[in-house]
């Protein structure tokens, strides 16, 4: 049984609008998957399909075997947490702990249990110290971590980060990705990161590339980033380290492509000593 399965899914936003012709992919439990795509590639539509905010025209989306439909909607939403793009548009309450409690309150969690879940969720994102702070006073990255905590308080098994870092500064982006990686490794949570930053895809076990509603590439991030020419046709960049490796190649230093800073440093050091 897959954590998330898209089977022959087609979807369109009405006549002439954006459409996904036919989509098939699966995510295993405990996996960390990145979905890469340029603007308008349909990657954000995936998040909304996975959690029943949108319904496919044809085909089925299922979460741990349960189809995402009217009947299973509630069950599915408890399993799939989605963190959206704009940190300002997903907090409901003015105070951090009240906002984190919101989801847990919605599903009728007893009071004492909500307290415990707030503790758990805020410590998972490293925001315990801000429990009683006003949301409006936090930085973008902190707000987004509160949004993640709000999702965690529902104890989901899958967390989808739908471009959750797009509006953040580099520091905020790093904070969010660290939290995602930690949740994956320590809590065994299935993570799907939807992004257009290649750096973020590099952290994943597997990367999927979307273009115009279709899945065009799939594989280990390191493997995908070796296919540079192909990525360019989908309006995607290499991660910065990949660009450095590429320039080195073009400049006549044939380093091995590893997409890893330390290994690259060693490679360069090796080349330099050999060359001299």
């Amino acid at each position: 049984m897959y954590a998330l399965e898209f089977k022959d899914v087609s979807f369109s936003y009405g006549e002439g609008g954006f459409r996904i012709p036919k989509l098939n992919f699966t995510v295993k439990e405990g996996e960390f998957v990145a979905i890469l795509g340029h603007n308008g590639s349909g990657k954000s539509t995936l998040a909304r399909l996975a959690n029943g905010i949108l319904a496919p025209d044809r085909g089925t989306v299922s979460v741990f075997g349960a189809p995402v439909d009217e009947k299973h909607l509630y069950e599915v939403r408890r399993q799939v947490g989605v963190v959206f793009q704009n940190p300002d548009n997903q907090t409901v309450a003015s105070i951090v702990e009240d906002d984190v409690a919101f989801g847990a309150e919605n599903v009728g969690t007893p009071r004492e249990e909500i307290g415990r879940r707030i503790d758990f969720a805020l410590s998972a994102v490293g925001m315990q110290a801000h429990r009683l702070s006003a949301v409006s006073r936090l930085s973008g990255g902190q707000k987004q971590r509160v949004a993640i905590a709000g999702v965690l308080a529902l104890k989901p098994r899958i967390m989808i980060l739908d471009e959750s870092t797009a509006m953040l500064d580099p520091r905020g982006r790093r904070e969010i990705m660290e939290v995602a990686k930690r949740l994956n490794q320590e809590e065994g949570m299935t993570i799907v990161v939807i992004t257009h930053f290649p750096e973020e895809a590099l952290l994943a076990d597997r990367a999927l590339v979307m273009n115009r509603g279709e899945l065009v590439m799939q594989g280990a991030p390191k493997e995908i980033f070796t296919r540079h020419e192909e990525l360019i046709t989908y309006n995607l960049e290499l991660p910065r380290i990949g660009r450095i490796e590429k320039s080195l190649h073009e400049g006549g230093m044939p380093v091995k492509s590893t997409l890893n800073i330390e290994e690259l440093v060693n490679e360069i050091a090796g080349e330099l000593t050999c060359g001299s």
Binding site: I53, Y74, V82, N89, G103, N106, V107, G108, T109, L154
Partner: peptide
Amino acid sequence: ELGDAMEARCYMGGKMRTKY
């Protein structure tokens, strides 16, 4: 967007809701 985010967090009105 807030509506979507609330729905994603299982909001379905006041029914069976608890209060922290």
